[in-house]
């Protein structure tokens, strides 16, 4: 078991998350992709915490912070999606052009 395995896995998860973030049409799927991104970052932090800083586990502390921020982000993001759905009657990202011009 090496550090590199976990880092490669987190990089793969991050790239999948970015692909989903950019290509999804459904707003809720975009939120799910953001959760994937945050989880891959957490996996990185935990791997560093275990292999580089095993006595003084600061990576785990950061991971707990990231988890709490991600929970808040999911709640606010879903509230925004609900509000947009109520106003525009769709969850299609291509039609959310209120701020475009």
């Amino acid at each position: 078991m090496q550090l590199q395995y976990f880092l490669l896995l987190a990089a793969a998860l991050f790239c999948i998350g970015i692909y989903g973030l950019v290509t999804s049409r459904n707003a809720i799927r975009v939120l799910m992709s953001i959760e994937l991104l945050l989880n891959s970052v957490n996996l990185n932090l935990m791997a560093f915490s275990n292999y580089l800083d095993p006595q003084n586990i600061r990576g785990q502390v950061f991971a707990v912070f990231v988890i709490s921020i991600a929970a808040a982000e999911a709640a606010v993001g879903l509230a925004i999606v609900l509000s947009i759905y109520r106003n525009r009657d769709t969850v299609d990202m291509e039609q959310f052009n209120l701020l475009k011009w």
Binding site: L9, A12, L13, I16, G17, Y19, G20, T23, S24, R29, M32, S33, L36
Partner: peptide, 8 residues
């Protein structure tokens, strides 16, 4: 990885 690909 399989489940993440399925999500996307």
């Amino acid at each position: 990885i399989g489940a993440a690909l399925g999500v996307v």
